[in-house]
Structures are given as C-alpha cells and as structure tokens.
Design a protein around this nucleic acid. Structure first.
Lengths: 255, 255
DNA sequence: ACTTCTGTTTCTTCTGGCGAAACGCGGAGG
DNA sequence: CCTCCGCGTTTCGCCAGAAGAAACAGAAGT
C-alpha cells in the first residue's frame, strides 16, 4: 500500500488546519496563506469549509481565524495517548518528587516531539512545556533519546535535512548531531545542554514497549544552574531508571 | 457572504473525521462509510489522507482507525473555550460545594450541547459527562435553558425536525418541546426530568455575555432521588444565581 | 468447494478545484 | 483631497483529479 490515495484538496486543507493549530493564536487569511504557501483563493475556500464544519472559527469583527469548538471537543475525547500517560504518570511523579524538577513525557511525530504529559516542579522557576506542544527532535533530550535507540537507517525520518539552530548551543551540522546520537545510545540518555532553550538543561531516556520498540521518552528539565555537572550523573541515572520502570509497565522485558 | 465556497472533498473528509471523533472508539472502514453514507472508495481515500496528516491513526493489525496524535495535540493547544471556562469555574465550584452534586458548563453547537467543563460531585453516585462530549439540546436542561432565551425564530437552528426520544420521559412532539421552552423562559431555568437519562434530574440556566446574548449554560445534575420536588426549587434558584454571577463576570449587565 | 464480508485497486467520466485576475473597502501617507 | 497599498471577497474558464462502480484479493465460515 503506497500513498496513491491522497486526496489533494483534503491534504492541503489539513495543512491549513495544522498551521492554525500549531500557531496557537488567531491568524489572518494573508498570514495563513503565506505560511502554507498556497494561493489566497484556495486558502480562503479551505477556511470557509473548515468553518462550516466547526473546525475553525472566524471572528467577523477582526477577520481572524482560530481553531474551533468541534476540533477542541474531539481533541478532549480522543483516546490517543491515554494508555501511555496513565502508565507513565506514577513514575513521573516519583521522579518529580525526588528532584523537584519538571518531568515531561513525549513521543516522536516526524521531526518533532509532542508533549503527552508533564508533571511540574513546584518551584517558581520551572520548565513548562505545553500539553500537545512540539519541539524539534534534534534540540531536545527527549527527541535525541528516542531517535538514538532507533535503527540508524530510520534516523533520517526524524532529522531535518538542514539544521536551524535554536540557540548558540544547538548543533549546526548533521555530522555532529549524529555523533551526539551515538553518544546518547552509548550512555543511555540524551542531553539537551541549552540547545532547545538557553539556560535550560534536560536529560531524557527512551521508553520501550513490549516488542522492544521505542514508544516514548521521559525527561527531567531544570535551569542549568540547578542541574550542573555535579548533579547531572544522578539525575541521568534516575531518568534512565524511570524510563525503565515505565517500559516494564508497558510490557518491555530487558535483556 | 454565503456558503458558495465549500470544497466538497474537504467537507466530506471532515465528516469522516467528525464521525470518528464523536464515536470515541476504533472503527472499521465499512462502518465509517456506512455512518457517513459515502462510497467505500471515497471513504478509504479520505482515511488514507487523514492518516497521512496524522489526524487519524490506522492500526494495520486490526485494520481499525482512530483519532490520531496530531488532532489530539491540536485539541490540547486550542484556546477555544478557555476564557469561558476560567471565568465560570469559581462559581461552578461554589455551586458544587453547596449541593455536592455535579455542575456542568456547556455551549450550543448546532442541535447539540458540548460540555466545556465540569465540576463533579464527591459522592460515589454522581453524574459524569465527558469533556468535549455532546448531548441533544432538546433532552438536556442545559440545552433547553440556552435555546429558550434565544429569539424564537432561531429555535429551529437548534431543534431537530424529528424527535428521537432518549427515554420514556423525553419529548415526542415538537409542540410539547416548544411549550417546555416557553416555560423554561418564564421560570428562568430548564429542567431535564429524566429525559436525557433515566433517573437523572438536571437544572440548567443560561449564561449571557456582555451584549446580552446567550453565551453558554450551567447546570446542576443529580440522581432523581436526591433532587426531588422538595429540593428542586432551591437548586433551581442557586443555578440561576450561579449563571447570573458568571454572566456578570462576562460583562453582562442585567436590566 | 462456495459464499460472504472485508479492505484494496482499477478505470473512465465529468465535476468542480483551482488560481490568476479583478473587485471593493479601509487606512495611511502625501 | 487623492493615491497607493494591503486586506478579504468574487469571478471565470480550463483541465486535473475527485469520484464511484466494478473488479480484485484475502480471510473466515459453512
């Protein structure tokens, strides 16, 4: 079965929907059509159709569009990540309570990670990702931890062809990124050392399912001042331990 | 501006998506195409397209489809009902705490209500709607409370042309339903007396926005044994009071 | 073996998706 | 005042591809 069955108008309209959904704010027609690189007329029609179905809401006062009620509702009802979240939550809480830093659960989606759940530090200064939000695989500990444990011939599926550094610490070449992934695999955890956001350190480890495949990842994030080089080894070991505990609850059997 | 801009394939694919979303379980191709009343080939293509974009996930083992990660993620990020929920929540909690029964917040969406938020009773036997879930306007106190305060020429937008009773207590004719709506408007609250679910009573009142338009509704639900005819007047008065408090926080000015 | 049901593929018709261009409006600047 | 620009909305005609009937392939049951 190949991809011969893509209905082009549907595919393109869904890109419009994704654009609005990921932007997380109201957008104007011009901005949307620029973002999705489609002619204005086409984008306009898709938006009208999306509005007719309740997936998008148009504010006639401002002429801005935003995600609509029906999409919100379906999103609340969707069971997609439910089992994983429930399974991971107890161990995530333990990890959070041990370090009083934020713990994230995420999975791979193309070249991004998507945050499935998070258990936040109780401190004022804490990491706060968005449930359902995304970050690039290559600049996050979560992303690197998951990809590193995939077969190498599957890495290109999750890595960009060109790197857009998010900070001064981000990787700028694919070669250095692949080295980092190999290091990640050897030591068992991925490290985001200010690559996704300046001043933030993050340690991530992969979660395996019952077939031994990478199912998700769990990470501990903190301000760099609190996760310095002395604190890192213990944090890394605990993240690995947490990921393993969750994996076993998913049916994974370590060899 | 009329509805001359509907892109048919997009519209139809979104009906497939709505079908899957509202069903809340995995479905097979045959069942979906029966539900949306489309030819198998067409439905199959739409599903492939929806899968390609991550809105639907196909399980190759079972050949079943379900709502996919990307739709879940957008649903979590969507801000659609956020302001209403935040505004209503404190008053809803007070109402719940006063009666120790479940309080629901919902809005109109076509002929249904959609549950935006809920604050649940702490008792074992309690009402439990689904966040993002739907019920028909005509059989719910929430629905009736909201529609009753719309101009009557807008009632047909929200009422079915033919009634499908959900219980023995449900309305069976449009005439009796319209009488109920007029009564609702006179007394200020809608009553679901076992019409949506047997043995459940529910009182609902409309929430108005700053322009005096119906924005939402709030309701108190309980097992009928606990909300008998002696308890009903006080509950109704409190629900009306809560709705008014929320309305004022939304900028509504009572006359 | 045959039947039934499922999902997948093929082929041809003609609908309507598509986008360039035009239109209308409001705001900013000279 | 006028002109320009940028926005969203509308028009028009071509041909790409959406559409669906029919066939195919496989699995399960009798």
């Amino acid at each position: 079965m190949t991809n011969d069955y893509i209905v082009k108008p549907v595919y393109k309209a869904l890109q419009v929907l994704l654009c609005l959904g990921e932007e997380r704010r109201e957008m104007a027609l011009s901005e949307i059509c620029y973002r999705v690189a489609m002619p204005k007329t086409t984008t306009f029609r898709y938006l009208q159709t999306l509005c007719a179905c309740g997936f998008v809401t148009h504010d006639p006062g401002t002429d801005l569009y935003r995600i609509g009620l029906r999409l919100w509702a379906i999103g609340q009802l969707a069971r997609e990540p439910l089992h994983l979240r429930e399974t991971a939550l107890p161990a995530m809480r333990e990890l959070r309570d041990r370090f009083n830093e934020t713990v994230n659960l995420g999975i791979l989606d193309g070249r991004d990670i998507v945050y499935l759940d998070m258990v936040e530090s109780r401190r004022s200064l804490r990491m706060q990702a968005q449930l359902g939000g995304r970050d690039p695989v290559y600049s996050t500990a979560l992303g690197k931890a998951m990809v590193a444990f995939l077969p190498e011939d599957r890495w290109p599926e999750h890595l960009p062809t060109r790197l857009t550094p998010r900070t001064d610490a981000s990787h700028t070449t694919l070669a250095s990124l692949r080295d980092d992934l190999r290091r990640t695999r050897e030591r068992g955890y991925g490290l985001d050392d200010g690559e996704n956001e300046e001043g933030v350190r993050c340690v991530g480890a992969p979660i395996f399912d019952q077939d031994g495949h990478v199912a998700a990842g769990v990470s501990l994030s903190a301000p760099a001042a609190r996760m310095n080089d002395r604190a890192l080894p213990e944090a890394a070991a605990s993240v690995i331990q947490t990921a393993l505990a969750i994996s076993c609850r998913l049916g994974y059997r370590p060899r």
